[in-house]
């Protein structure tokens, strides 16, 4: 009896200790976000206080509409969404098609070609940037969305091929064979058997494509020049150029860029986790 009690006491102390450590760490990580939100709701004068005031007084909700009036964030939002939709559609179609071939069809040099796919994941994209830029420039595609969309219709990114293949390998091959006996073509098997079973990985890739396009800075910076074509990321940078001392407005604009990702995360959490875990599988 005594030993049982002392054991639970020890466990309680152990758990208590870890809760304190975990909470402290969570607090440290949460502070920048709290600081962001708090600044975004302050008056201009209140941002310049030391020590800082954590709770805005008064709450200036109008900082948000004011930030949106200053710069055309609604246009940047729709530009970003359009790029996401067209780029992701191409990535999902061509990456899954290639992955289907790599996972379920036999052809000479299949393994070699797949290693080539994987090795491009490790290629620093900078080495292809300048000639690609020049090709797009020659085609007259600078300052259009095409450089951000068209490449994804050609294979959809090595990493997406990898993720699709990883998932397709878990689907029993008997399904293909059964369909083949019924006279289905490979295209029919891909479209009618495999893709309908692959909703989780499709969702994962859609979610990650959204995050990628939402966050991407380097490529839009190079390819999109006139403000009416900017994405959210470039627009926010432009905002900083215009309002570099108005920290409350700048934090409101930054919050507006972060918030949709947090919303997406809370609705699609399991796709985030499965996607990241699958990416970890590349280490195996």
């Amino acid at each position: 009896m005594l030993s049982v009690n002392s054991r639970t006491a020890k466990e309680l102390i152990f758990a208590g200790f870890w809760y304190v450590v975990l909470s402290l760490f969570a607090l440290v990580l949460a502070l920048p976000l709290v600081w962001l939100l708090s600044t975004s709701l302050k008056t201009g004068g209140q941002t310049f206080l030391m020590p800082p005031k954590w709770i805005p007084d008064p709450f200036v909700w109008t900082n948000y509409p004011e930030a949106f009036r200053a710069v055309a964030f609604h246009e940047y939002f729709w530009n970003t969404i359009r790029i996401v939709i067209f780029a992701t559609t191409g990535a999902m179609l061509t990456a899954s098609l290639a992955a289907f071939a790599f996972a379920r069809l036999r052809f000479p040099f299949r393994e070699t070609l797949f290693i080539l796919v994987l090795s491009t994941i490790m290629l620093p994209s900078i080495v292809t940037l300048i000639p690609t830029f020049i090709v797009f420039r020659t085609l007259g595609w600078i300052d259009t969305f095409l450089p951000l969309i068209v490449p994804l219709w050609f294979g959809g990114g090595a990493f997406n091929i990898f993720l699709f293949r990883q998932f397709f390998m878990t689907i029993p091959l008997e399904l293909d064979e059964a369909a083949r006996i019924d006279g289905a073509s490979n295209l029919r098997i891909y479209w009618g058997v495999i893709l309908p079973l692959s909703k989780p990985v499709l969702a994962t890739i859609a979610v990650f494509a959204f995050i990628h396009n939402w966050n991407d800075f380097f490529e839009p910076l190079i390819y999109l020049q006139s403000p009416e074509n900017w994405t959210m990321a470039i627009g926010l940078r432009g905002f900083r150029g215009l309002y570099h001392t108005e920290w409350n407005l700048m934090m409101a604009a930054s919050t507006a860029m972060i918030a949709p990702l947090l919303v997406l995360f809370f609705f699609a959490q399991r796709y985030f986790v499965s996607g990241i875990q699958m990416s970890g599988l590349a280490g195996r």
Binding site: T94, A95, L97, A98, F100, A101, F102, L105, R106, F107, P108, R110, L113, L116, V117, T120, L123, V127, T128, L129, I130, P131, T132, V135, P151, W153, F154, G155, G156, I161, S185, N186, L187, Y190
Partner: peptide, 24 residues
């Protein structure tokens, strides 16, 4: 099967040539 395999990876092959190997 081999023919379809090559056909299905064709977009990637083109992409590799146009956007990776060629520019490199």
């Amino acid at each position: 099967e081999a023919r379809d395999g090559y056909l299905f990876i064709l977009p990637w092959v083109f992409g590799f040539i146009i956007f990776t190997a060629g520019p490199m």
